[in-house]
Amino acid sequence: MRLTLRIWRQRGPERPGAMTTYEVDGISEDMSFLEMLDTLNERLILEGDEPVAFDHDCREGICGACGMVINGQAHGPERTTTCQLHMRHFADGDTIDVEPWRAAAFPVVKDLVVDRSAFDRIIGSGGYVTAPTGSAPEAHATPVPKPVADTAFEHAECIGCGACVAACPNGSAMLFTSAKVVHLNVLPQGAPERESRVLDMVAAMDGEGFGGCTNTGECALACPKGVPLQAIATMNREFLRATRKGAR
């Protein structure tokens, strides 16, 4: 395959950036999108140019490190992570636009790499349970009904890639935050901090400068892990409940 890439190049934070055009040839349709970029980078290095910086780690679709907006869609046309997107979903001769996640809370570090530590601070504000550490607890000590476990798992699947923020027209982190809140709030282990968790995490989310939710649903369509849009409704319900209770 021969492709024309238009990639956002930016030398560093606070530096001006621009879409830069590259031609790549000899791309196999079995390559992942990241392998296609590796091919380009190898050539750039040989030519003495600066390779395109992008985040990646497991390349198995489970870590959430990779992420770029491909032709206006977070992680590209397939509902998966960029590392699991294969070039067979593009046609020979295509022009592909590649941009970083765009959000005030995710400043560009370099090229396609953005700083997602805002997510870490949201998690730090309440995305945990206070559990005794040490030896593993006895499995039957805290019974969890199967449907509850399923709901918790469905939301725990979030890998924190940030595609929801990138896809949202408001740069909102509601799907991410709600996935974490719902995951822990439905479980008995998360019950002691049920109210403070949602209040603190929403406050942290707002404090990072993410936008608000206008229920466009773009986030859930972009989520590679299929976190449902209803997670946001559940978090709203938890938030209102905690506000009513005046939370400890």
Partner: peptide, 15 residues
């Protein structure tokens, strides 16, 4: 106002 400020740089590829 907040929503617009949360996406200061628009995507070049719009859809």
């Amino acid at each position: 106002r907040r929503d617009l400020a949360a996406r200061p740089t628009a995507y070049a590829h719009r859809r």
